[in-house]
Every structure is written in C-alpha cells, then in structure tokens.
Amino acid sequence: MSLIHPLPHLAQARIATYTLFFICGVLLAAWVSRIPAIKAHLGLETGELGLVLLGGPLGLVSAMPLTGAALARLGSRRVVTAASLACALALPLLAWAPNGWALALALFLFGFFNAAMDISMNAQAVEVERQQGKPIMSSFHALFSLGGLIGAALGGGAAAVGLGPAGFFSLVALGSILWLAWATRVLLPTPPSPPGPLFVWPRGVLLGLGLIVFCTGLGEGAVGDWSAVFMRQELGSSEAVAALAFSAFSVAMVVGRLSGDWLNERFGAVWLGRVGGVLAAAGFGVTLLSSHPQGAMLGFVLVGLGYCTLFPLAFSAAGNTPGISPGLALASVATLGYLGFLVGPPLIGLVAHVSSLRVSFALVALLALLISWMAGLLRPRA
C-alpha cells in the first residue's frame, strides 16, 4: 500500500522528481554533445570509436536486473539517490580517460548508473503519480527531453568558447550534485516489496507493454541516428538543414509531453496511445512522400508528437501492474525499450544497405501502427 503524505510534501516530491528527470537528460546530452571532441583528443578512428561506445550499452544492460532487485528491496528513494549521484560523478571520468580502453570502462560505469537512475526515477514518478491521483507521468518525461535540449545547448556553447570536455563535464557534474543534494532529500519513501525474484522477464501484460516501448525506442532511435542522413541522402539538403530534423523532432517531443497529461486525463491512455501510434506512422509517411526538406521536417515533427507520450504511458501502466513491485515491472519493460534503442539504428542501417533508407522508415512506420493496435494494454490498472 502506498504511504500517504500531506500535500506540501507531495508537492515537494513532485518538483524533486522533475529535477531528477531534468538532470538525467542534461547529463546524457552533455556527454553526447562532446563525443567529437573526445574522439579527436584520444585520436580514435571511427571504427575504434564505435567499439569504445559499446561500453555504454553494456553498462545499461547490466544495470537492469540489479536495479529492479534493488528497487524491490530498498525502495525508489534510496536507489535513485545513490544512482543519480553516481551518474553525475561518473560524467567527468569520460573526459579524464587517457585512452580508448579507459573510455570504454568509464562509459560502462556511466551507462550503468544512468540506466539505474532512469529506472529508479520512473519508479519514484509512479509513486508520486499514484498519490497525486491524476496522470502526471508525461510531464516528468517532458523534463527529461527538455534537459536533453539544454544539455546539448550547453555542450555546444562550451565548445564555442573553447571549454574542453573535462572542464565542461566537471561543471555539469558539480551543478547536478548541488541540485540532487536538495531533490533527493524530499522524495517519497516507498515500502520494500516481499522477497522474490531479482528480475522478471516480461510476460503477459508486461510483455505487451515491453513491445510498445521496444517499437517506440526503435522509432526514436531511428530518427535520432538517421533523420539527418535521410535529409542529406534522399532530399539533398545542406548539412545545417539536415541537423534541424532531429531538433524539430526533439522540440515536438517536449511540447507533446507537456500537454500529454492533460490529454491523458481528458481522453484516456488508450485513446492517446492509439492516436500516438497513428500520428507517428503518418509522420513517417509525410517524410517519405516529401520531395522537399520542409515537408520532411514537418513529418519528423508529427513523428515526435506521436511518440512523445508512449514511454510515459507504458511506464505508468507497468508501474501499476497488480501482483508485481513497480521497480521489477519497470526494469522488465524498460529492458525491451532500451533494446529497441540499441538494435534499432543498426537494423535500419542493414535494411537500408540491402534496399533503401525509405524502406527502413516504412518498416518503422508499420511498427508505429502496431503500437496503435496494442494500445489497449495502456489502460490503467488498480
């Protein structure tokens, strides 16, 4: 049973959880924005960098079962406190690595703690949403997306003024720790779950929710890794215009998530999921049928508006699945979501190699329609 707290404490916990999501987005984007500088500093070839970057996904996958077990035993407040502080402290290690092997190890640690922070802050968000008594999960994920935009902008600004990755990462880590020192003190305590398995592979409803987040993660990864390539290769746009495709998608994600809770409360999670899947598929369709960059950009905006609420809806439904602790349920479903992020871009590249990038995007659009068909699983459960 949830622990009930007076409204002022609940309001503080909600703001603190917003802070966690925002910082998680900032930390991740700060690293991504300085990858070219670190590549140049270490003198890594493109192929070498690709191997080094595998450290992050390996850490991420390793964190899943351990985080779910820790959440069941300790509750989300303790786990997210430790994971978020460790994630911030791990960021400067990425710039201090003297060679590729050390960077791979640092990425393993950063990926591990970032994933642990992600799952545990979603578990805390489920508890806050449950006590709030209305849908608010989408707004939490909006802060993550906003943090990503801010982190990327800060990284670009740091590069423009000549601030190296080591100094930039240290400043971001210090600022994050100061915010976390307050936020982690006012989170809601959650009771531990009875002894049980350390990890639950998704079955039944959780498997369906996992497939929804897998298709969503694959689609988001497709836009992140291939939208600029599509704009350049298929439509002949300039490099600057091509880069705007992902920016347009990201802004649409933020705007959509900020309105997602209101739409959820007004129309329900199932309706929102069905519309989201259809809208994402339609966005890919507009992009594929466009002969000009402006039309393709509009398509990527529609894709962002379609995908924006699917992760929050699926995580909220998983965290409220009867008969299993929220932490284990979230870790189980998120594993498939992360798998979509990881395998999606390479699969799209493989399909594009044997056919075309247009065919790859068409297949992703079909998966978006599959999300719409499965949206009934997003219905809230007591």
Rank of each mutant, 00 (worst) to 15 (best):
residue 30 A to S: 15
residue 215 C to N: 05
residue 53 L to Y: 06
residue 338 Y to M: 04
residue 118 D to K: 13
residue 57 P to F: 01
residue 208 G to H: 08
residue 1 M to P: 13
residue 60 L to V: 11
residue 47 G to D: 10
residue 241 V to M: 14
residue 86 A to E: 04
residue 154 L to H: 03
residue 348 I to Q: 02
residue 75 G to D: 07
residue 128 V to L: 13
residue 222 A to E: 11
residue 65 P to S: 10
residue 50 G to W: 01
residue 74 L to W: 15
residue 144 F to V: 02
residue 291 S to H: 08
residue 98 P to Q: 07
residue 78 R to G: 10
residue 307 Y to Q: 04
residue 234 E to N: 15
residue 374 M to F: 11
residue 289 L to P: 02
residue 245 A to L: 01
residue 239 E to W: 04
residue 253 M to W: 00
residue 242 A to C: 04
residue 96 W to N: 04
residue 63 A to T: 04
residue 227 S to R: 00
residue 25 G to F: 01
residue 130 R to T: 15
residue 269 A to E: 15
residue 181 A to C: 00
residue 223 V to W: 07
residue 238 S to P: 12
residue 33 S to K: 06
residue 2 S to W: 08
residue 319 G to F: 08
residue 316 S to A: 15
residue 302 L to C: 03
residue 286 V to D: 01
residue 215 C to L: 11
residue 78 R to A: 15
residue 170 S to W: 05
residue 322 P to L: 10
residue 191 P to K: 14
residue 146 L to P: 03
residue 75 G to V: 07
residue 30 A to D: 07
residue 380 P to H: 05
residue 276 G to R: 03
residue 321 T to C: 07
residue 168 F to M: 12
residue 330 L to S: 06
residue 7 L to P: 02
residue 323 G to C: 13
residue 55 G to I: 03
residue 265 E to Y: 05
residue 366 L to M: 14
residue 203 R to F: 06
residue 52 V to G: 00
residue 35 I to Y: 01
residue 354 V to L: 12
residue 161 V to I: 14
residue 151 G to D: 12
residue 91 L to T: 03
residue 210 G to W: 09
residue 329 A to R: 08
residue 359 V to A: 10
residue 323 G to R: 09
residue 19 T to A: 15
residue 293 P to G: 04
residue 181 A to R: 00
residue 142 A to T: 11
residue 320 N to C: 08
residue 292 H to K: 05
residue 62 S to K: 01
residue 224 G to F: 09
residue 182 W to Y: 10
residue 43 G to S: 04
residue 108 F to G: 07
residue 16 A to M: 08
residue 193 S to Q: 15
residue 316 S to D: 13
residue 165 P to Q: 12
residue 160 A to E: 12
residue 12 Q to L: 15
residue 321 T to D: 00
residue 134 K to V: 11
residue 25 G to D: 04
residue 370 L to F: 10
residue 155 G to W: 13
